[in-house]
Every structure is written in structure tokens, then in C-alpha cells.
């Protein structure tokens, strides 16, 4: 259909703040987040749901923002990469681990990966390495070769996990 549709008012919570914007029904959530709301940390890599660059957390779960429309998000809660550091700009443990392990190069896919693991580790704070790999499998990265990303996430997991019980003390 060539005729454009009227814009609709969309109000949602982005990174803890209530925000409002107008969107034609067909406006992709990626474009709304980036260009209407100005949160450009979320990136667009393929617009067909494969690469994972645009992954954000929608109502608590990580999802591709190129596979959603802004109008669907009226009333939703969305978290993007901009939410991860604290108010003073201090990076969280996951971000720090990425830096420590050189788990990013160009950084374009990184925001989406961080958001996938933010969701995943909340729900599953002590995953196995294979489970981490399985989640990362939903992202394409062309620079790093992935190995350092898995190491970075596992570093966070291991720091979170309770210390191994001393067998001698049992």
C-alpha cells in the first residue's frame, strides 16, 4: 500500500524513563529507538532478524528490534545498551569483562550481544559454557572470531558463581 498511514502516539519506558514519540504503524522499532528517541547505541545490521545487532530487551526479554514495530510498544518497557552503565558512567561487570577480554573490535554488534546476555544472565546466572555459546549463536560478529566474547561472559559467570566448596572440608 502506497498511501501513508497517520502516525500514532507511542509511549513507553526506555531505560527507566517514560518517553513518547509518534510513529506510522510501519515504523520499525529500530528506527524509532534510534531516530525518534535518539538512542543510537542500538545498531541496525540486517533488518531481517539474523544478525542480532539490534537486540534490545523488550518487557524483560531480549529480542530483535528490527522484527517489531514501534506501535506495538505502546506501554512497553525497553532496555538498550545505554542502560547498562551506572549514573556515573561506570560500566557494569559484563561491560568490563568485554573490555578486559578484548571481546569487541568495531563494536557494532556489541550492543546487541550485551543485551542478549543481560537478559540471559538475569534469568540464568550460572549457565554452562555451552549455554553461553548457544545464546551467542544468535549474533553475527565479523571482527572478533567470538572466542573472546565467550571468555568474557564466562568470566562474569564465574565471578558470580559461589566459590567451589573445599572438598577437604566435607
Amino acid at each position: 500500500m502506497i498511501e501513508q498511514k497517520p502516525k500514532q502516539r507511542v509511549t513507553l519506558t526506555l531505560n527507566g524513563r517514560k518517553v513518547t514519540g509518534d510513529a506510522e504503524p510501519r515504523l520499525l522499532l529500530t528506527d524509532f529507538i534510534r531516530h525518534t528517541l535518539g538512542a543510537t547505541g542500538t545498531h541496525v545490521g540486517c533488518e531481517h532478524g539474523v544478525c542480532g545487532c539490534c537486540t534490545v530487551i523488550i518487557d524483560g526479554v531480549a529480542a530483535r528490534s528490527c522484527l517489531a514495530f514501534a506501535v506495538q510498544m505502546d506501554g512497553a518497557t525497553i532496555e538498550t545498551v545505554e542502560s547498562l552503565a551506572d549514573e556515573d558512567g561506570r560500566m557494569n561487570a559484563l561491560q568490563e569483562a568485554f573490555r578486559r577480554h578484548h571481546a569487541l573490535q568495531c563494536g557494532f554488534c556489541t550492543s546487541g550481544i550485551l543485551m542478549s546476555f543481560t537478559d540471559f544472565l538475569r534469568r540464568n546466572p550460572e549457565p554452562s559454557r555451552d549455554e553461553v555459546v548457544d545464546v551467542l549463536c544468535g549474533h553475527l560478529c565479523r571482527c572478533t572470531g567470538y572466542a573472546n566474547i565467550v571468555d568474557a561472559v564466562m568470566d562474569v559467570v564465574e565471578a558470580h558463581a559461589p566459590p567451589q566448596r573445599d572438598i577437604g572440608a566435607v
Binding site: 534510534r34 547505541g41 578486559r100 557494532f108 556489541t110
Partner: peptide, 19 residues
Amino acid sequence: LRRREDEALLTGAGRYADD
């Protein structure tokens, strides 16, 4: 040395052409 580029990129503060 850890990369000086990383903090901006990890916090969504990268400045790519479309940003």
C-alpha cells in the same frame, strides 16, 4: 594494553556514521 576505544563502544556511545 586494554583498548581505549572500548568504553564508548560498550556503553552505546559509539559514533558511527548513521548516529
